[in-house]
Simulated assay, not measured.
Amino acid sequence: MKIAIVGSGLSGLACADQLVAAGHRVRLFDKARGPGGRMSTRRLDTAVGQVSFDHGAQYFTARDQAFQTLVKQWQDSGTAARWPGAGPEAWVGVPAMNAPIKALSARHDVTWSLRIDSLVKKDNRWQLESDDQTIEDVFDIVILAIPAEQAADLLASWDKDFLAVAANTASAPCWTLMLAFADSLQTEKITVRDDVVIGWAARNSSKPGRTGPDSWVIQASPDWSQEHLEDSQGEVVSLLSSRFADLLGVALPDPLVASAHRWRYARSGKTDQNALYNKDFSIGVCGDWLIGPRVECAWLSGTALAKMIFA
């Protein structure tokens, strides 16, 4: 079969891996400029060299046996390593969080920088429509591997039950602050957790394989992010920088980089299903939001959907 997957984060790529291994032809579409999804990495040039920030997921765990096998392959290939600074179960991509996603996407047919705006059924096959580009291909099956809110938009005309699941599984937002300094901050702390304003902060440059100046990723709590969702980037940089300095107990020097990124769909929800598949409409849905807010859950959901299609 010829299968389209909308979204090429870990969930979509996990599903694609299984489908291609079974002999199906898969094409993926993603509105981002490159691989990463919530495992994205941002690189910026500074006066003292390039600095990178894992401004999405900070680390991942591997508890499922099959996922452990995959992570071991990533470790053997040098694209993942343990990060003791976040705990004994923590893994990160090397040299950046998106390294495993880049490796997975490299073996698939992925079209980047293309937003899918609607789905059309013609002669019992699927056509994808975009305001930016004409997509000539037609597909036997379409899979949505995107956040619940975005999946709901595309499901509206096709499966009311799936639409209800997606519409009732909201994601929590997250403002993320990225700071870099010419000289390392005078603190022994690697992470800061569970503050009412800052849910997580980490010395990104302490992760294995990182180079460049001292860099920090500071992620606001879901409640604070929701309260300040429409604040300007400048306001968020100022407020989170001040709180971060208070929590560390240090005065922050002038930063090389001070930038904020707003994730509208950051921390996923959770349902009682691993994936969704309607064989009559030939449409499927996968994503971490179906299982829980962990990187591993995205892989589990994509793999589960592929098995549903096989069945």
Rank of each mutant, 00 (worst) to 15 (best):
K2N: 13
I5N: 04
V6P: 00
G7Q: 00
L10C: 08
S11E: 02
L13T: 07
A16E: 05
L19V: 07
A21T: 10
A21Y: 03
A22V: 01
A22F: 04
A22I: 02
A22R: 13
G23T: 12
G23N: 12
H24P: 02
R25Q: 15
R25W: 05
F29M: 02
D30I: 12
R33E: 11
R33L: 10
P35H: 11
G37S: 05
R38E: 04
S40L: 11
R43C: 12
L44T: 10
L44M: 12
V48A: 10
G56A: 11
Q58L: 12
T61C: 09
R63D: 11
F67A: 13
V71P: 08
Q75F: 10
G78P: 07
T79H: 12
A81W: 04
W83E: 10
G85S: 09
P88T: 03
A90W: 07
V92D: 03
A99T: 04
A99Q: 08
I101Y: 08
A103H: 10
S105N: 05
S105W: 06
R107K: 14
R107D: 04
D109S: 13
T111C: 09
W112G: 01
I116C: 03
I116D: 02
Q127S: 08
L128N: 04
E129V: 01
S130L: 00
D131T: 09
Q133T: 08
I135N: 00
L144D: 00
A145C: 09
A145Q: 05
A145P: 09
P147F: 02
A148P: 01
A151N: 15
D159K: 08
F162N: 01
A164E: 09
A164K: 05
T169K: 02
A172N: 12
L177R: 08
A180P: 11
Q186T: 14
K189G: 15
I190T: 15
T191Y: 02
D194I: 01
V197W: 07
G199Y: 06
W200V: 09
A201G: 13
A201F: 11
N204I: 07
T211G: 06
G212T: 13
G212Y: 12
I218K: 03
Q219E: 08
A220F: 11
P222I: 11
E227W: 09
E227L: 14
V236N: 02
V236D: 03
S238V: 11
L240H: 09
F244C: 14
F244Q: 12
A245G: 13
L247E: 09
L252S: 11
P253I: 08
D254F: 07
P255F: 11
L256G: 13
R267Q: 11
R267L: 15
S268C: 15
K270N: 10
T271R: 06
Q273T: 08
N274I: 01
L276Q: 00
N278M: 01
K279N: 15
F281Y: 06
G287A: 09
W289K: 02
P293W: 04
P293Q: 08
R294V: 14
L300V: 14
S301R: 07
G302P: 03
G302N: 07
A306Q: 05
